[in-house]
Design a protein around this nucleic acid. Structure first.
Lengths: 229, 229
DNA sequence: GTATACATGACAATCTTGTGACAGGCACTT
DNA sequence: AAGTGCCTGTCACAAGATTGTCATGTATAC
């Protein structure tokens, strides 16, 4: 299992440090940010798997950031756990409305934190990230990082693998080249949109005749993974 | 698609010009300012979609302006790309802290600039809410960008798709050819009104026998989408 | 019956996408 | 260090699909 990346956003370095240590002990990869802007930049660049967000921060506060992230296509799926010093019900409601997936009130024990974090990841991690996905004999198994067609292993490059993984976990939906770049290549890369075409072609080629039709061109828009013709 | 507006703030006219040309080639609308005050005025007046901001400027410098914009409610969402001659890490950090969304060091190629600008705009543009519409077994699903008749996918071109989408979200109402051109083709295109007829025909053909009757001709006026005969 | 409005098929221009080739970057070996 | 193999991103050109128009056929209203 590849280590999950968690981004901690809190303005107090001491708290970040405390959490970071706890998470690293639990084998997570940890990123830190002390304000909303830096956090946003890191999210775009590093695509963390989960966000630990302090509710009260100078400048753009936690709720604000959460709301913004849920609003943007590329980050709307990112699970968020809010941290707060106050245990008021109000905050909880506001937080959940803003799109937080869970909520922890300070003070909390590292054990508790890790436990809830694990729980959130478990229920928000879509199939295909850890579990295998299978469609019409085409099997993608994240554990072994392999793709096979009716049991026969396929030769597939890293980018094509990520592209296929994204598609198989987001079926029946069109994505523009731009969205694919965001989701598969990662936020801050600067790559020609047409490059997507080339990788689509490589992916199709790798899938071979029997599964070609799953990767569909939507003229004037982008591409789609679909079992329907 | 309406062209996005980009405001360039730099004290050197030559650089502004260079950038402006590159952006105009890429179909952006360009505004220019040579100092922070003018920039602020333009931002308020014109509400650009993105700001290209030079880091070093006489008077209020770039960082200062960025920080100020992020602080004000009305402009806090405005994406900012910082331009700088120095490639020091320090600046990058300061810049991102001030709220910049990306960062480009001079010298840069117009290509790179446009690419990164596109990337920033892509991820800051909120996604639209898209819901499927269904009428008498005819289903149009914006998420998958697909039209199906009783579960059977239909072949449909881009323009016909937009036309159908417009009709299905504006049922039981007549539209003149002119109105359809405005709504479906977009405001400022010059196209013969008769062209609408042709696309109506193509749409009817694509829908096939079972749904032909939904697209109705209103003699002397235009067309209508209606479930009633 | 005749004028008007709409439907239809054909077509060339234009856009979009598919494809093969290529050069640079990187990791690993020799 | 140089060599090798693999992966990537980009380009140029080919292939294909879409688009707007026109000429002509057909329905409709008066």
């Amino acid at each position: 299992m590849t280590a999950k990346t968690v981004l901690i956003v809190d303005d107090e370095a001491a708290i970040r440090e405390m959490i970071a240590v706890a998470l690293e002990m639990a084998d997570y990869r940890v990123l830190e940010a002390d304000n909303a802007q830096a956090a946003h930049a890191l999210i775009v660049d590093e695509q963390p798997d989960l966000l630990l967000l302090d509710w009260m921060m100078p400048g753009t506060n936690g709720i604000e950031l959460a709301r913004r992230l849920k609003h943007e296509e590329a980050t709307s799926e990112l699970p968020i756990i809010l941290l707060t010093a106050k245990s008021e019900e109000d905050n909880k409601i506001l937080g959940l409305e803003a799109g937080a997936d869970d909520y922890i009130t300070k003070p909390f024990s590292p054990r508790e934190l890790v436990a809830r974090l694990r729980a959130v990841l478990r229920r928000t991690t879509p199939r295909g990230i850890e579990e295998a996905v299978e469609v019409e004999g085409l099997l993608l198994d994240p554990a072994s990082h392999r793709v096979s067609s009716n049991g026969q292993a396929l030769e597939i490059g890293p980018t094509e693998y990520r592209l296929l993984q994204f598609f198989m976990t987001h079926q029946e939906r069109v994505y523009t080249r731009g969205q694919l770049l965001d989701q598969v290549w990662g936020g801050n890369v600067y790559v020609e949109e047409r490059t997507v075409d080339v990788h689509i072609r490589r992916l199709r080629k790798a899938l071979g005749e029997p599964h070609q039709h799953l990767i569909q061109t939507v003229r004037g828009t982008g591409y789609r993974f679909s079992t329907q013709l």
